[in-house]
């Protein structure tokens, strides 16, 4: 297979970036998108050019590190998949493929396609946890959890923190990510004592990081590789309303 790539190249956070064209040939349909970029990079290196910097690690859709906006979509055209799970068979021979980094004020570009998602960590640090020190736990089965809730909590917990929701959202909103963690904890008995504090603190941090607001377009849910549901955002709204308006 043969492709024309238009890749965003930017030396560092403050540099001016631009799209650069690359032609690539001899691509196997069973290659993953990242393997295709590997092949391109190998060529660039051997030509003495600077290879394209991008984030990746597990290459099996679980670490949340890979992050490319491909052909106008976060993680590319494959539904419910990360960039590393995208295979070239998804494209047509001869396609022109745009490759850009996640774009959001809260995710500054490190280089080329790699961005800094530290904002997500800081949101978690603000309240995305249960305050339990090592050794303070009671026996695990002292805390039964209704299966349906456990399942829903697990659905929400499946978020890999990739940031595709932010990238896909026209407002660069982090609401889906935040709602997933708030929901997981709100659904579990372990999360109850800090429920209001958590919702308030995480939303405050989310806003401080400069993410946009949610206007319920649903783009995040549609592009989320882990299919985190919009119902979580509704739950986050409830949690927040409850925490700030109703709770004493």
């Amino acid at each position: 297979m043969k492709f024309k790539l238009k890749v965003w190249r930017q030396a560092n956070q403050n540099a001016q970036g631009k799209l650069v064209d690359y032609d690539i040939d001899g691509i196997n349909a069973d290659m993953s998108f990242l393997e295709m970029v590997d092949v391109l990079n190998d060529k660039l290196i051997k030509k003495g050019e600077d290879p394209i910097a991008f984030d990746h690690d597990c290459r099996e859709g679980i670490c949340g590190m890979c992050s490319m906006y491909i052909s106008g979509r976060a993680h590319g055209p494959q539904h419910a998949a990360t960039t590393c799970q995208l295979y070239m068979r998804k494209f047509k021979d001869g396609d022109t493929i745009y490759v850009e980094p996640w774009r959001a004020r809260a995710f500054p570009i490190v280089k080329d396609l790699a961005v800094d998602r530290g904002a997500f960590d800081r949101i978690i640090a603000a309240g995305g946890f249960v305050s339990v020190n090592t050794g303070q736990a009671q026996d695990a089965n002292n805390l039964p959890v209704e299966k349906a809730f456990a399942e829903k909590a697990m659905d929400a917990a499946a978020c890999i923190g990739c940031g595709a929701c932010v990238a896909a959202c026209k407002n660069a909103s982090a609401m889906l990510f935040v709602s997933a963690k708030v929901s997981q904890m709100a659904l579990l008995p372990q999360g109850q004592p800090e429920r209001t504090r958590r919702a308030l603190a995480m939303v405050a941090q989310m806003d401080a990081e400069g993410f946009g607001n949610c206007t319920n377009t649903g783009a995040c849910e549609a592009e989320c590789p882990k299919e985190i549901s919009l119902t979580n955002i509704a739950r986050l709204n409830r949690e927040y309303i409850n925490a700030s308006v109703i709770a004493e």
């Binding site: 850009e100 959001a104 400069g210």
Partner: peptide
């Protein structure tokens, strides 16, 4: 929240 826009965006897909 997004100072630099995407050069190409296929938002209708989502």
């Amino acid at each position: 929240a997004r100072p630099t826009k995407y050069a190409y965006s296929n938002a209708n897909a989502n």
